[in-house]
Design a protein around this nucleic acid. Structure first.
Lengths: 248, 248
DNA sequence: CGCGATTTGTGCACGTCTTCACAAGCGCCT
DNA sequence: AGGCGCTTGTGAAGACGTGCACAAATCGCG
């Protein structure tokens, strides 16, 4: 939420979406955001069963079962009434919709503290992505080898992208550098950006930006702390309640 | 969004909120999530002006100006018609609502790759938080000094929390350890958790959890890539459009 | 074959969020 | 003092997301 969605200005095409090729059932954005969670829950299943009910999967993913069913129904019903969902089939279907079978190329810009951590994150490979290049603007960092990849100078981005198209760019630079890095990524053909820098990025239509900001998350939590504290002692203090088991 | 909100089950207090102490104007959750963004935009202003219009601030924060005005109106109108908002006053007001003047204590559990990066992140201090302790379960890591703090064993958590109340805990452990760490944090009196581990946490009512998951963000971007790719060549390919200037 | 248990898929109602459009208020200039 | 331009604050409408509750579909068993 609250992100720059995808750049295309809506309500522009004169003829509406008449003969259009909206090749994808337009999934609600909220549904899309939950699909990866379902996928993770599916991967974490270790009971031998071939099928899983919406109730069980919903619990594992931390959502309401009705919501889960509605989400899955949007991508065309792969469940069997009275039985549940075929785990293998559902997994494959979600991965297809998310385009994870393509193993998209990702590049990471900014190999500082955070960049190092991201480069070493094994969630990339295990979730269907390939880090193909690391960049930094600091000459002192260029040449360093991290996790099998050599850090290259940001000026080489265009050249690297020419050899192999890069779909997704991750920005882990200071805020001051983020916009120019974003511009460079766009110029190199990147059409999706994950931005860890605490600033707003301007990008042309058609480029998606998602933002992750630690400070914002903390401040939201801080608000709830503040609110809780101001509610002083309210009586009905029931102790710990449900504690749904969730596989690791 | 799509988070476990705050644990308290709604619609429980029998008498409604009659004589209640809902000490806080219930701000919409969506508004709260944007306040930190406004705050950052305010801090980044470097023109000497004492006031700023909703239009200008909205642009700097990357949102619609009507939305910004409505958000700010929820916290009680600190603008002057025909002029704009008093920068200093507005900043102070937002910081108060978010409870940032309290400089809440934060502890970080899990000093691996990501944990190191987080511990070194200066956004903590600069945004009104104090990291007061680092924990890890690995004895090999205990004792290490990071950024002026010594890593302690997770078993000391209760003891440390007894000395100084800790409001917020950050989990940067592998998924397998996250739930037990969350339990320990809750037992130590932590009431807000920021979870970087890719798993669902179960917590008692009254405890807030927010989750940040890199892999999920990438998968959402991947979906949009997939969709864009499937829309093949659609004709009206207008080039780069607006590029709102955003201070660093 | 028929029945009951189970589970999906979905119509509907409700609450939340967004956006437009405009009245109300403020300051400045004449 | 009066008028004008600018900007806030907000009513209303619409889009979106959520969750209940139930009909429809499937399996297993006698």
């Amino acid at each position: 939420m609250s992100q720059q969605r995808h750049g295309s200005t809506p309500g522009q095409s004169p003829g509406g979406r008449s003969g259009a090729v909206a090749a994808f059932p337009d999934l609600p954005e909220a549904t899309i955001a939950r699909l990866p969670e379902y996928l993770r829950a599916l991967h974490n299943l270790d009971d031998g069963s071939d099928t899983i009910s919406s109730e069980a999967l919903a619990t594992a993913a931390g959502v309401n079962s009705a919501k889960l069913r509605k989400d899955l129904s949007h991508l065309g019903s792969y469940g069997t009434r009275g039985v549940g969902y075929d785990v293998a089939l559902l997994t494959e279907q979600i991965e297809y919709v998310l385009g994870l079978d393509q193993r998209r190329a990702v590049c990471l810009v900014g190999v500082g503290n955070l960049g190092h951590a991201l480069a070493g994150y094994d969630g990339f490979a295990s979730r269907g992505f390939r880090i193909v290049a690391l960049f930094d603007a600091d000459p002192a960092r260029v040449g360093e080898r991290i996790d099998g990849l050599t850090v290259r100078h940001i000026d080489e981005l265009l050249q690297v992208a020419a050899e192999e198209p890069i779909a997704i760019g991750v920005i882990a630079t200071p805020a001051g550098a983020a916009q120019s890095v974003a511009d460079a990524l766009v110029a190199a053909g990147v059409t999706s950006i994950l931005n860890f820098a605490p600033c707003v990025l301007a990008v042309p239509p058609g480029v998606d930006v998602r933002k992750v900001d630690l400070a914002i998350e903390l401040q939201i939590l801080s608000f709830h702390e503040h609110r809780k504290a101001s509610l002083t002692a309210l009586p009905g203090g029931r102790a710990a309640a449900g504690k749904e088991a969730v596989g690791s």
